[in-house]
Computed example of a mutant assay.
Amino acid sequence: MKKQIFAAVTALCLMATTTLFAQEAKPKVEPKTPPTAEQLAERQTERMTQRLNLTDAQAKQVYQLNLDQIKQMQAMREKMRQARMAQADKMKSILSTEQFMQWAQMQGPCPGQPGNGPQMKHGKKGPHHGDCPMAGKKNCPCKAQAADKK
């Protein structure tokens, strides 16, 4: 009797696991490309048009203002990124590799760096440990340190 019950439970478990694994795997989602300045301005203008009941003439003017502001902000963001990279290059020439790594971690996350988006909620990190300001560069100390560990 015990053998029959055990066999029945085993069969049920096998069928349940088979059913779980038989489900189709979700296709991998390709990384999203960031929206263009025009797309951002369009979305922002649409929200403002709905909430503020803008006329067509107002919406066109607001769109142009939004577009100009977004482009200006993107230019400032790029300028800041270049300034951070220049500082990192200078620090790398002054500090030892260990000191540079400590300094890089002291800097905190940099906006726009790989691994700092919504995926961080799930504990995923980019290819670099910490928040390396040299991410993506040939002379990144993270790559050298990873090679030393191997």
Rank of each mutant, 00 (worst) to 15 (best):
K2W: 05
A8E: 09
L12Q: 09
L12P: 00
M15Y: 07
A16Q: 07
T18Y: 13
A22G: 04
A22I: 08
E24C: 10
A25R: 12
K26C: 07
K26M: 12
V29G: 01
K32F: 03
P35W: 02
T36Y: 03
E42N: 11
R47P: 00
M48R: 13
R51T: 06
R51K: 12
T55L: 06
D56M: 10
A59C: 04
A59T: 07
K60R: 15
K60F: 01
L65C: 02
D68C: 01
K71H: 02
M73C: 00
Q74L: 10
A75Q: 14
R77K: 15
R77N: 12
R81Q: 13
A88Y: 05
A88D: 06
K92P: 00
K92V: 00
S93Y: 00
M101E: 09
Q102Y: 02
P109Q: 14
P114W: 04
G117D: 12
G117R: 04
G117F: 06
M120G: 05
K121C: 00
K121L: 11
G123M: 04
G123D: 04
K125N: 08
P127Y: 03
H128P: 00
H129V: 07
G130I: 04
G130V: 05
P133Y: 10
M134E: 02
K143G: 09
K149D: 09
K150D: 07
